[in-house]
Write a protein that binds this DNA or RNA. Sequence first.
DNA 1: TGCAAACTTGCAGTGACTGCAAAACAATCC
DNA 2: GGATTGTTTTGCAGTCACTGCAAGTTTGCA
Lengths: 207, 207
Amino acid sequence: MNQPGESLRDRKKRRTRAALERATVRLAAERGYDHVTVEEIAAEADVSVRTFFNYFASKDEALIGADPEAGPRIAERILAFPEDVSPFDAYRLSILAEITDELNNARDLWLLRKEVLMQRPDLLVRAFANSAESEQLLANAVGQRAGLPESHVYPRLLVAAGSAAFRCAVTRWALDDSVALGELVGEALGLFGTGLAHVPHHHEGGS
Amino acid sequence: MNQPGESLRDRKKRRTRAALERATVRLAAERGYDHVTVEEIAAEADVSVRTFFNYFASKDEALIGADPEAGPRIAERILAFPEDVSPFDAYRLSILAEITDELNNARDLWLLRKEVLMQRPDLLVRAFANSAESEQLLANAVGQRAGLPESHVYPRLLVAAGSAAFRCAVTRWALDDSVALGELVGEALGLFGTGLAHVPHHHEGGS
DNA sequence: TGCAAACTTGCAGTGACTGCAAAACAATCC
DNA sequence: GGATTGTTTTGCAGTCACTGCAAGTTTGCA
């Protein structure tokens, strides 16, 4: 009884992880991030506190739902683009694809997260602190495409710009979600692409 | 006994703050950030643990030496540039000036911090989490110069780019400090200015 | 000198997080 | 089916960051 895809064990793990993530976000949105203890979250997900920490290294991580497979997945996407796509575009499109997928799979969670992040913008920054290895993966993928040596700034700078774009976009989206998050990230990355030296033209409809 | 400049009280406060910052950095560099307790830091600086937390909201903040006046100071600089300097340049030059000053005042501290940040790059990211209000200040200053409404992305994106540039630069500097930190930040900001859409030319000498 | 405001301290408490060893459980082999 | 083995869950004891509060101490000022 073991399809290569998913054993009972794997399924249970995924469900537990999801339950913990969901419980964290729901409770935090409901009564404020720091009026929720890990004990309550664990209880809500029907596991012990110790188990919570087997799945997430910290309460912060659970709130964001840090997915350890996201990094590798995006890196793969970057490398999968045809040769004639620029490193910048490969990166940009990969990020956008990931965001689109993520929102399609868990839009409701993100709407709740938005509530929390509006109260505590710092949590979004903190969330990125734990993703140093993922950033390294992405930087390597970009570097490979660009044919640059390990030590070059460009890949790391591009990845850092991605984080910044995402942060900015979420912040804006939290204030006004009439525009899709993906759009906002795309817009921000677009500005990074063309350069910030000149103030972009301010057209009326938008921000 | 009260020159408008500094009272006894003010001087004592500055000294205590500096002692705590210094103790944190020194001990962390010596035996690793998380093998140092706040209790030890406080003892080293000859104050109580409670006093430590009167000065810094967290151990992280003490390590970075988060200066509550840095934000306002940079914002002032940005606004002080003549009209014909672009918002981007005003921002860039203000950041570089701040970094230069900081390094001149506490180069030794930064050399020790470098050691710590090499082991724990996440601490640098976390450090920025606590500076949300400062970022807001800078964004407002940039927005004012650019004549943009509160809601526009540009100012926030530029400031976020600055953080990213700083992060990248410190990381590089930690690996090889043969180039001044200011140079590296300047280089990174330069790339943000001209745009990341194209891979920059890779000239031999450098990175 | 004496009062008021600012700063420091101790204390008691909360809650995140860790290591360890035992129990519960799922996959595998006979 | 039942014994075996590897994985996951759990409880427990402990450490440490951080907070509020209510004294104590120091500084600024009249």
